[in-house]
Write a protein that binds this DNA or RNA. Sequence first.
DNA 1: AGCTAATGCGAACCGGGTTTACTTTTGAAC
DNA 2: GTTCAAAAGTAAACCCGGTTCGCATTAGCT
Lengths: 208, 208
Amino acid sequence: MAGVSKEKKALRREHIRNTALALFAERGFEAVTVNEIAEAAGVAKVTLFNYFPSKEDLVLDGVKEDTAAVVAARRPGQTPLDALREHYLAMPDGVAGLDVEALMTRMRIIVGSAALVAGVQRIQYLQRVELAAVLSGRAACDAHTDDLEADLMAAQIVATVQMVQQGFFQRLAAGVSLREAGTSLAGDVRQAFDLLEHGYGRRYAQGD
Amino acid sequence: MAGVSKEKKALRREHIRNTALALFAERGFEAVTVNEIAEAAGVAKVTLFNYFPSKEDLVLDGVKEDTAAVVAARRPGQTPLDALREHYLAMPDGVAGLDVEALMTRMRIIVGSAALVAGVQRIQYLQRVELAAVLSGRAACDAHTDDLEADLMAAQIVATVQMVQQGFFQRLAAGVSLREAGTSLAGDVRQAFDLLEHGYGRRYAQGD
DNA sequence: AGCTAATGCGAACCGGGTTTACTTTTGAAC
DNA sequence: GTTCAAAAGTAAACCCGGTTCGCATTAGCT
């Protein structure tokens, strides 16, 4: 049957990824070559690239936040900002079931490599485009039909989410408990989305 | 004297860049190899990389908008948003003296290549970090000392500026006159910065 | 068992970028 | 103008991420 081979493939994929992450954690992303990873994992380089389209994907595969889906699924009468606020206030619950240590390792690998940080930016750019499409109600791959407001909002939401999330994971990485980090996160989420809703007004006027 | 050699170096640099841009415009960024560029420019590959740190830089060098400097130089009592609004309202005057055709060619090259678009994102990320530093008053290379509001504002400003600018250049690329594009730009700038100042409120509530 | 299709493989290749070791320019001092 | 040191240029070999190709192995199905 097909199911058993799928499972074996998934196992092999995880094996390759874990091998790679272990090496990256030890010596940094750029200091490890794909040849090494392949050898350490006991597969051919070409096989590695058969499972992961690029070296970056060994780390970044699966980091995409689907803000567009959250917004698209918002309840009647709910604004995109409300839907996202709700979603991110609930984030600690989602993280609770995961291997936080592994998550932190991956974070450390990412922030230790300019290429990976850039990769994250690239992924968020795609998110922004998707979100703008949802907001303006156009199909996901339409050309930019001049909905400046939707484009602006999408860009600002994605940027906001990234900042807030970054703070959350940094606190976790600093050893803060999941519970406490969750509390801080809640405050950050509220602050960030309130700013989006009500604006910056005259904040940061020169000379205050 | 040193001046004359500086001038010759600058000329050679421009020659290499122009050679490359011509090839890119003709066949696309990825379809041209640096070997070809070097040969076409009559220079060794290693010399090319001596002038430009990477193939991307042949196109992207000089695209960085220094929003951080604009904000840092704001007048007493002026908010960052006011300073930037003023600056971008004046943008058409800055563009007027430039070779618009060359600018458009470069734009077309960039949007024709995923790698270059990603490169632009990367550059804007650096801008965001600089701007956050200016806003929160910390030194440019300090570690992230938890000024969530400044980080948020920086991210949102950079995203906003990018969207507005993109619209401006797209209109120019579509053949709109500089004068008309300037008018549209003014409207976009005002709309965008008003949103930043006053927020999105309940815009895009589901079911409107 | 036997056939077919998928998967894995080594090796050669490509292109961006670096290193090395050598030659040419260059600019300035005499 | 000659000389000399530093700067800049060069060819060639190399490294690494990623692809292509032709062949071997395996898996699933009958």
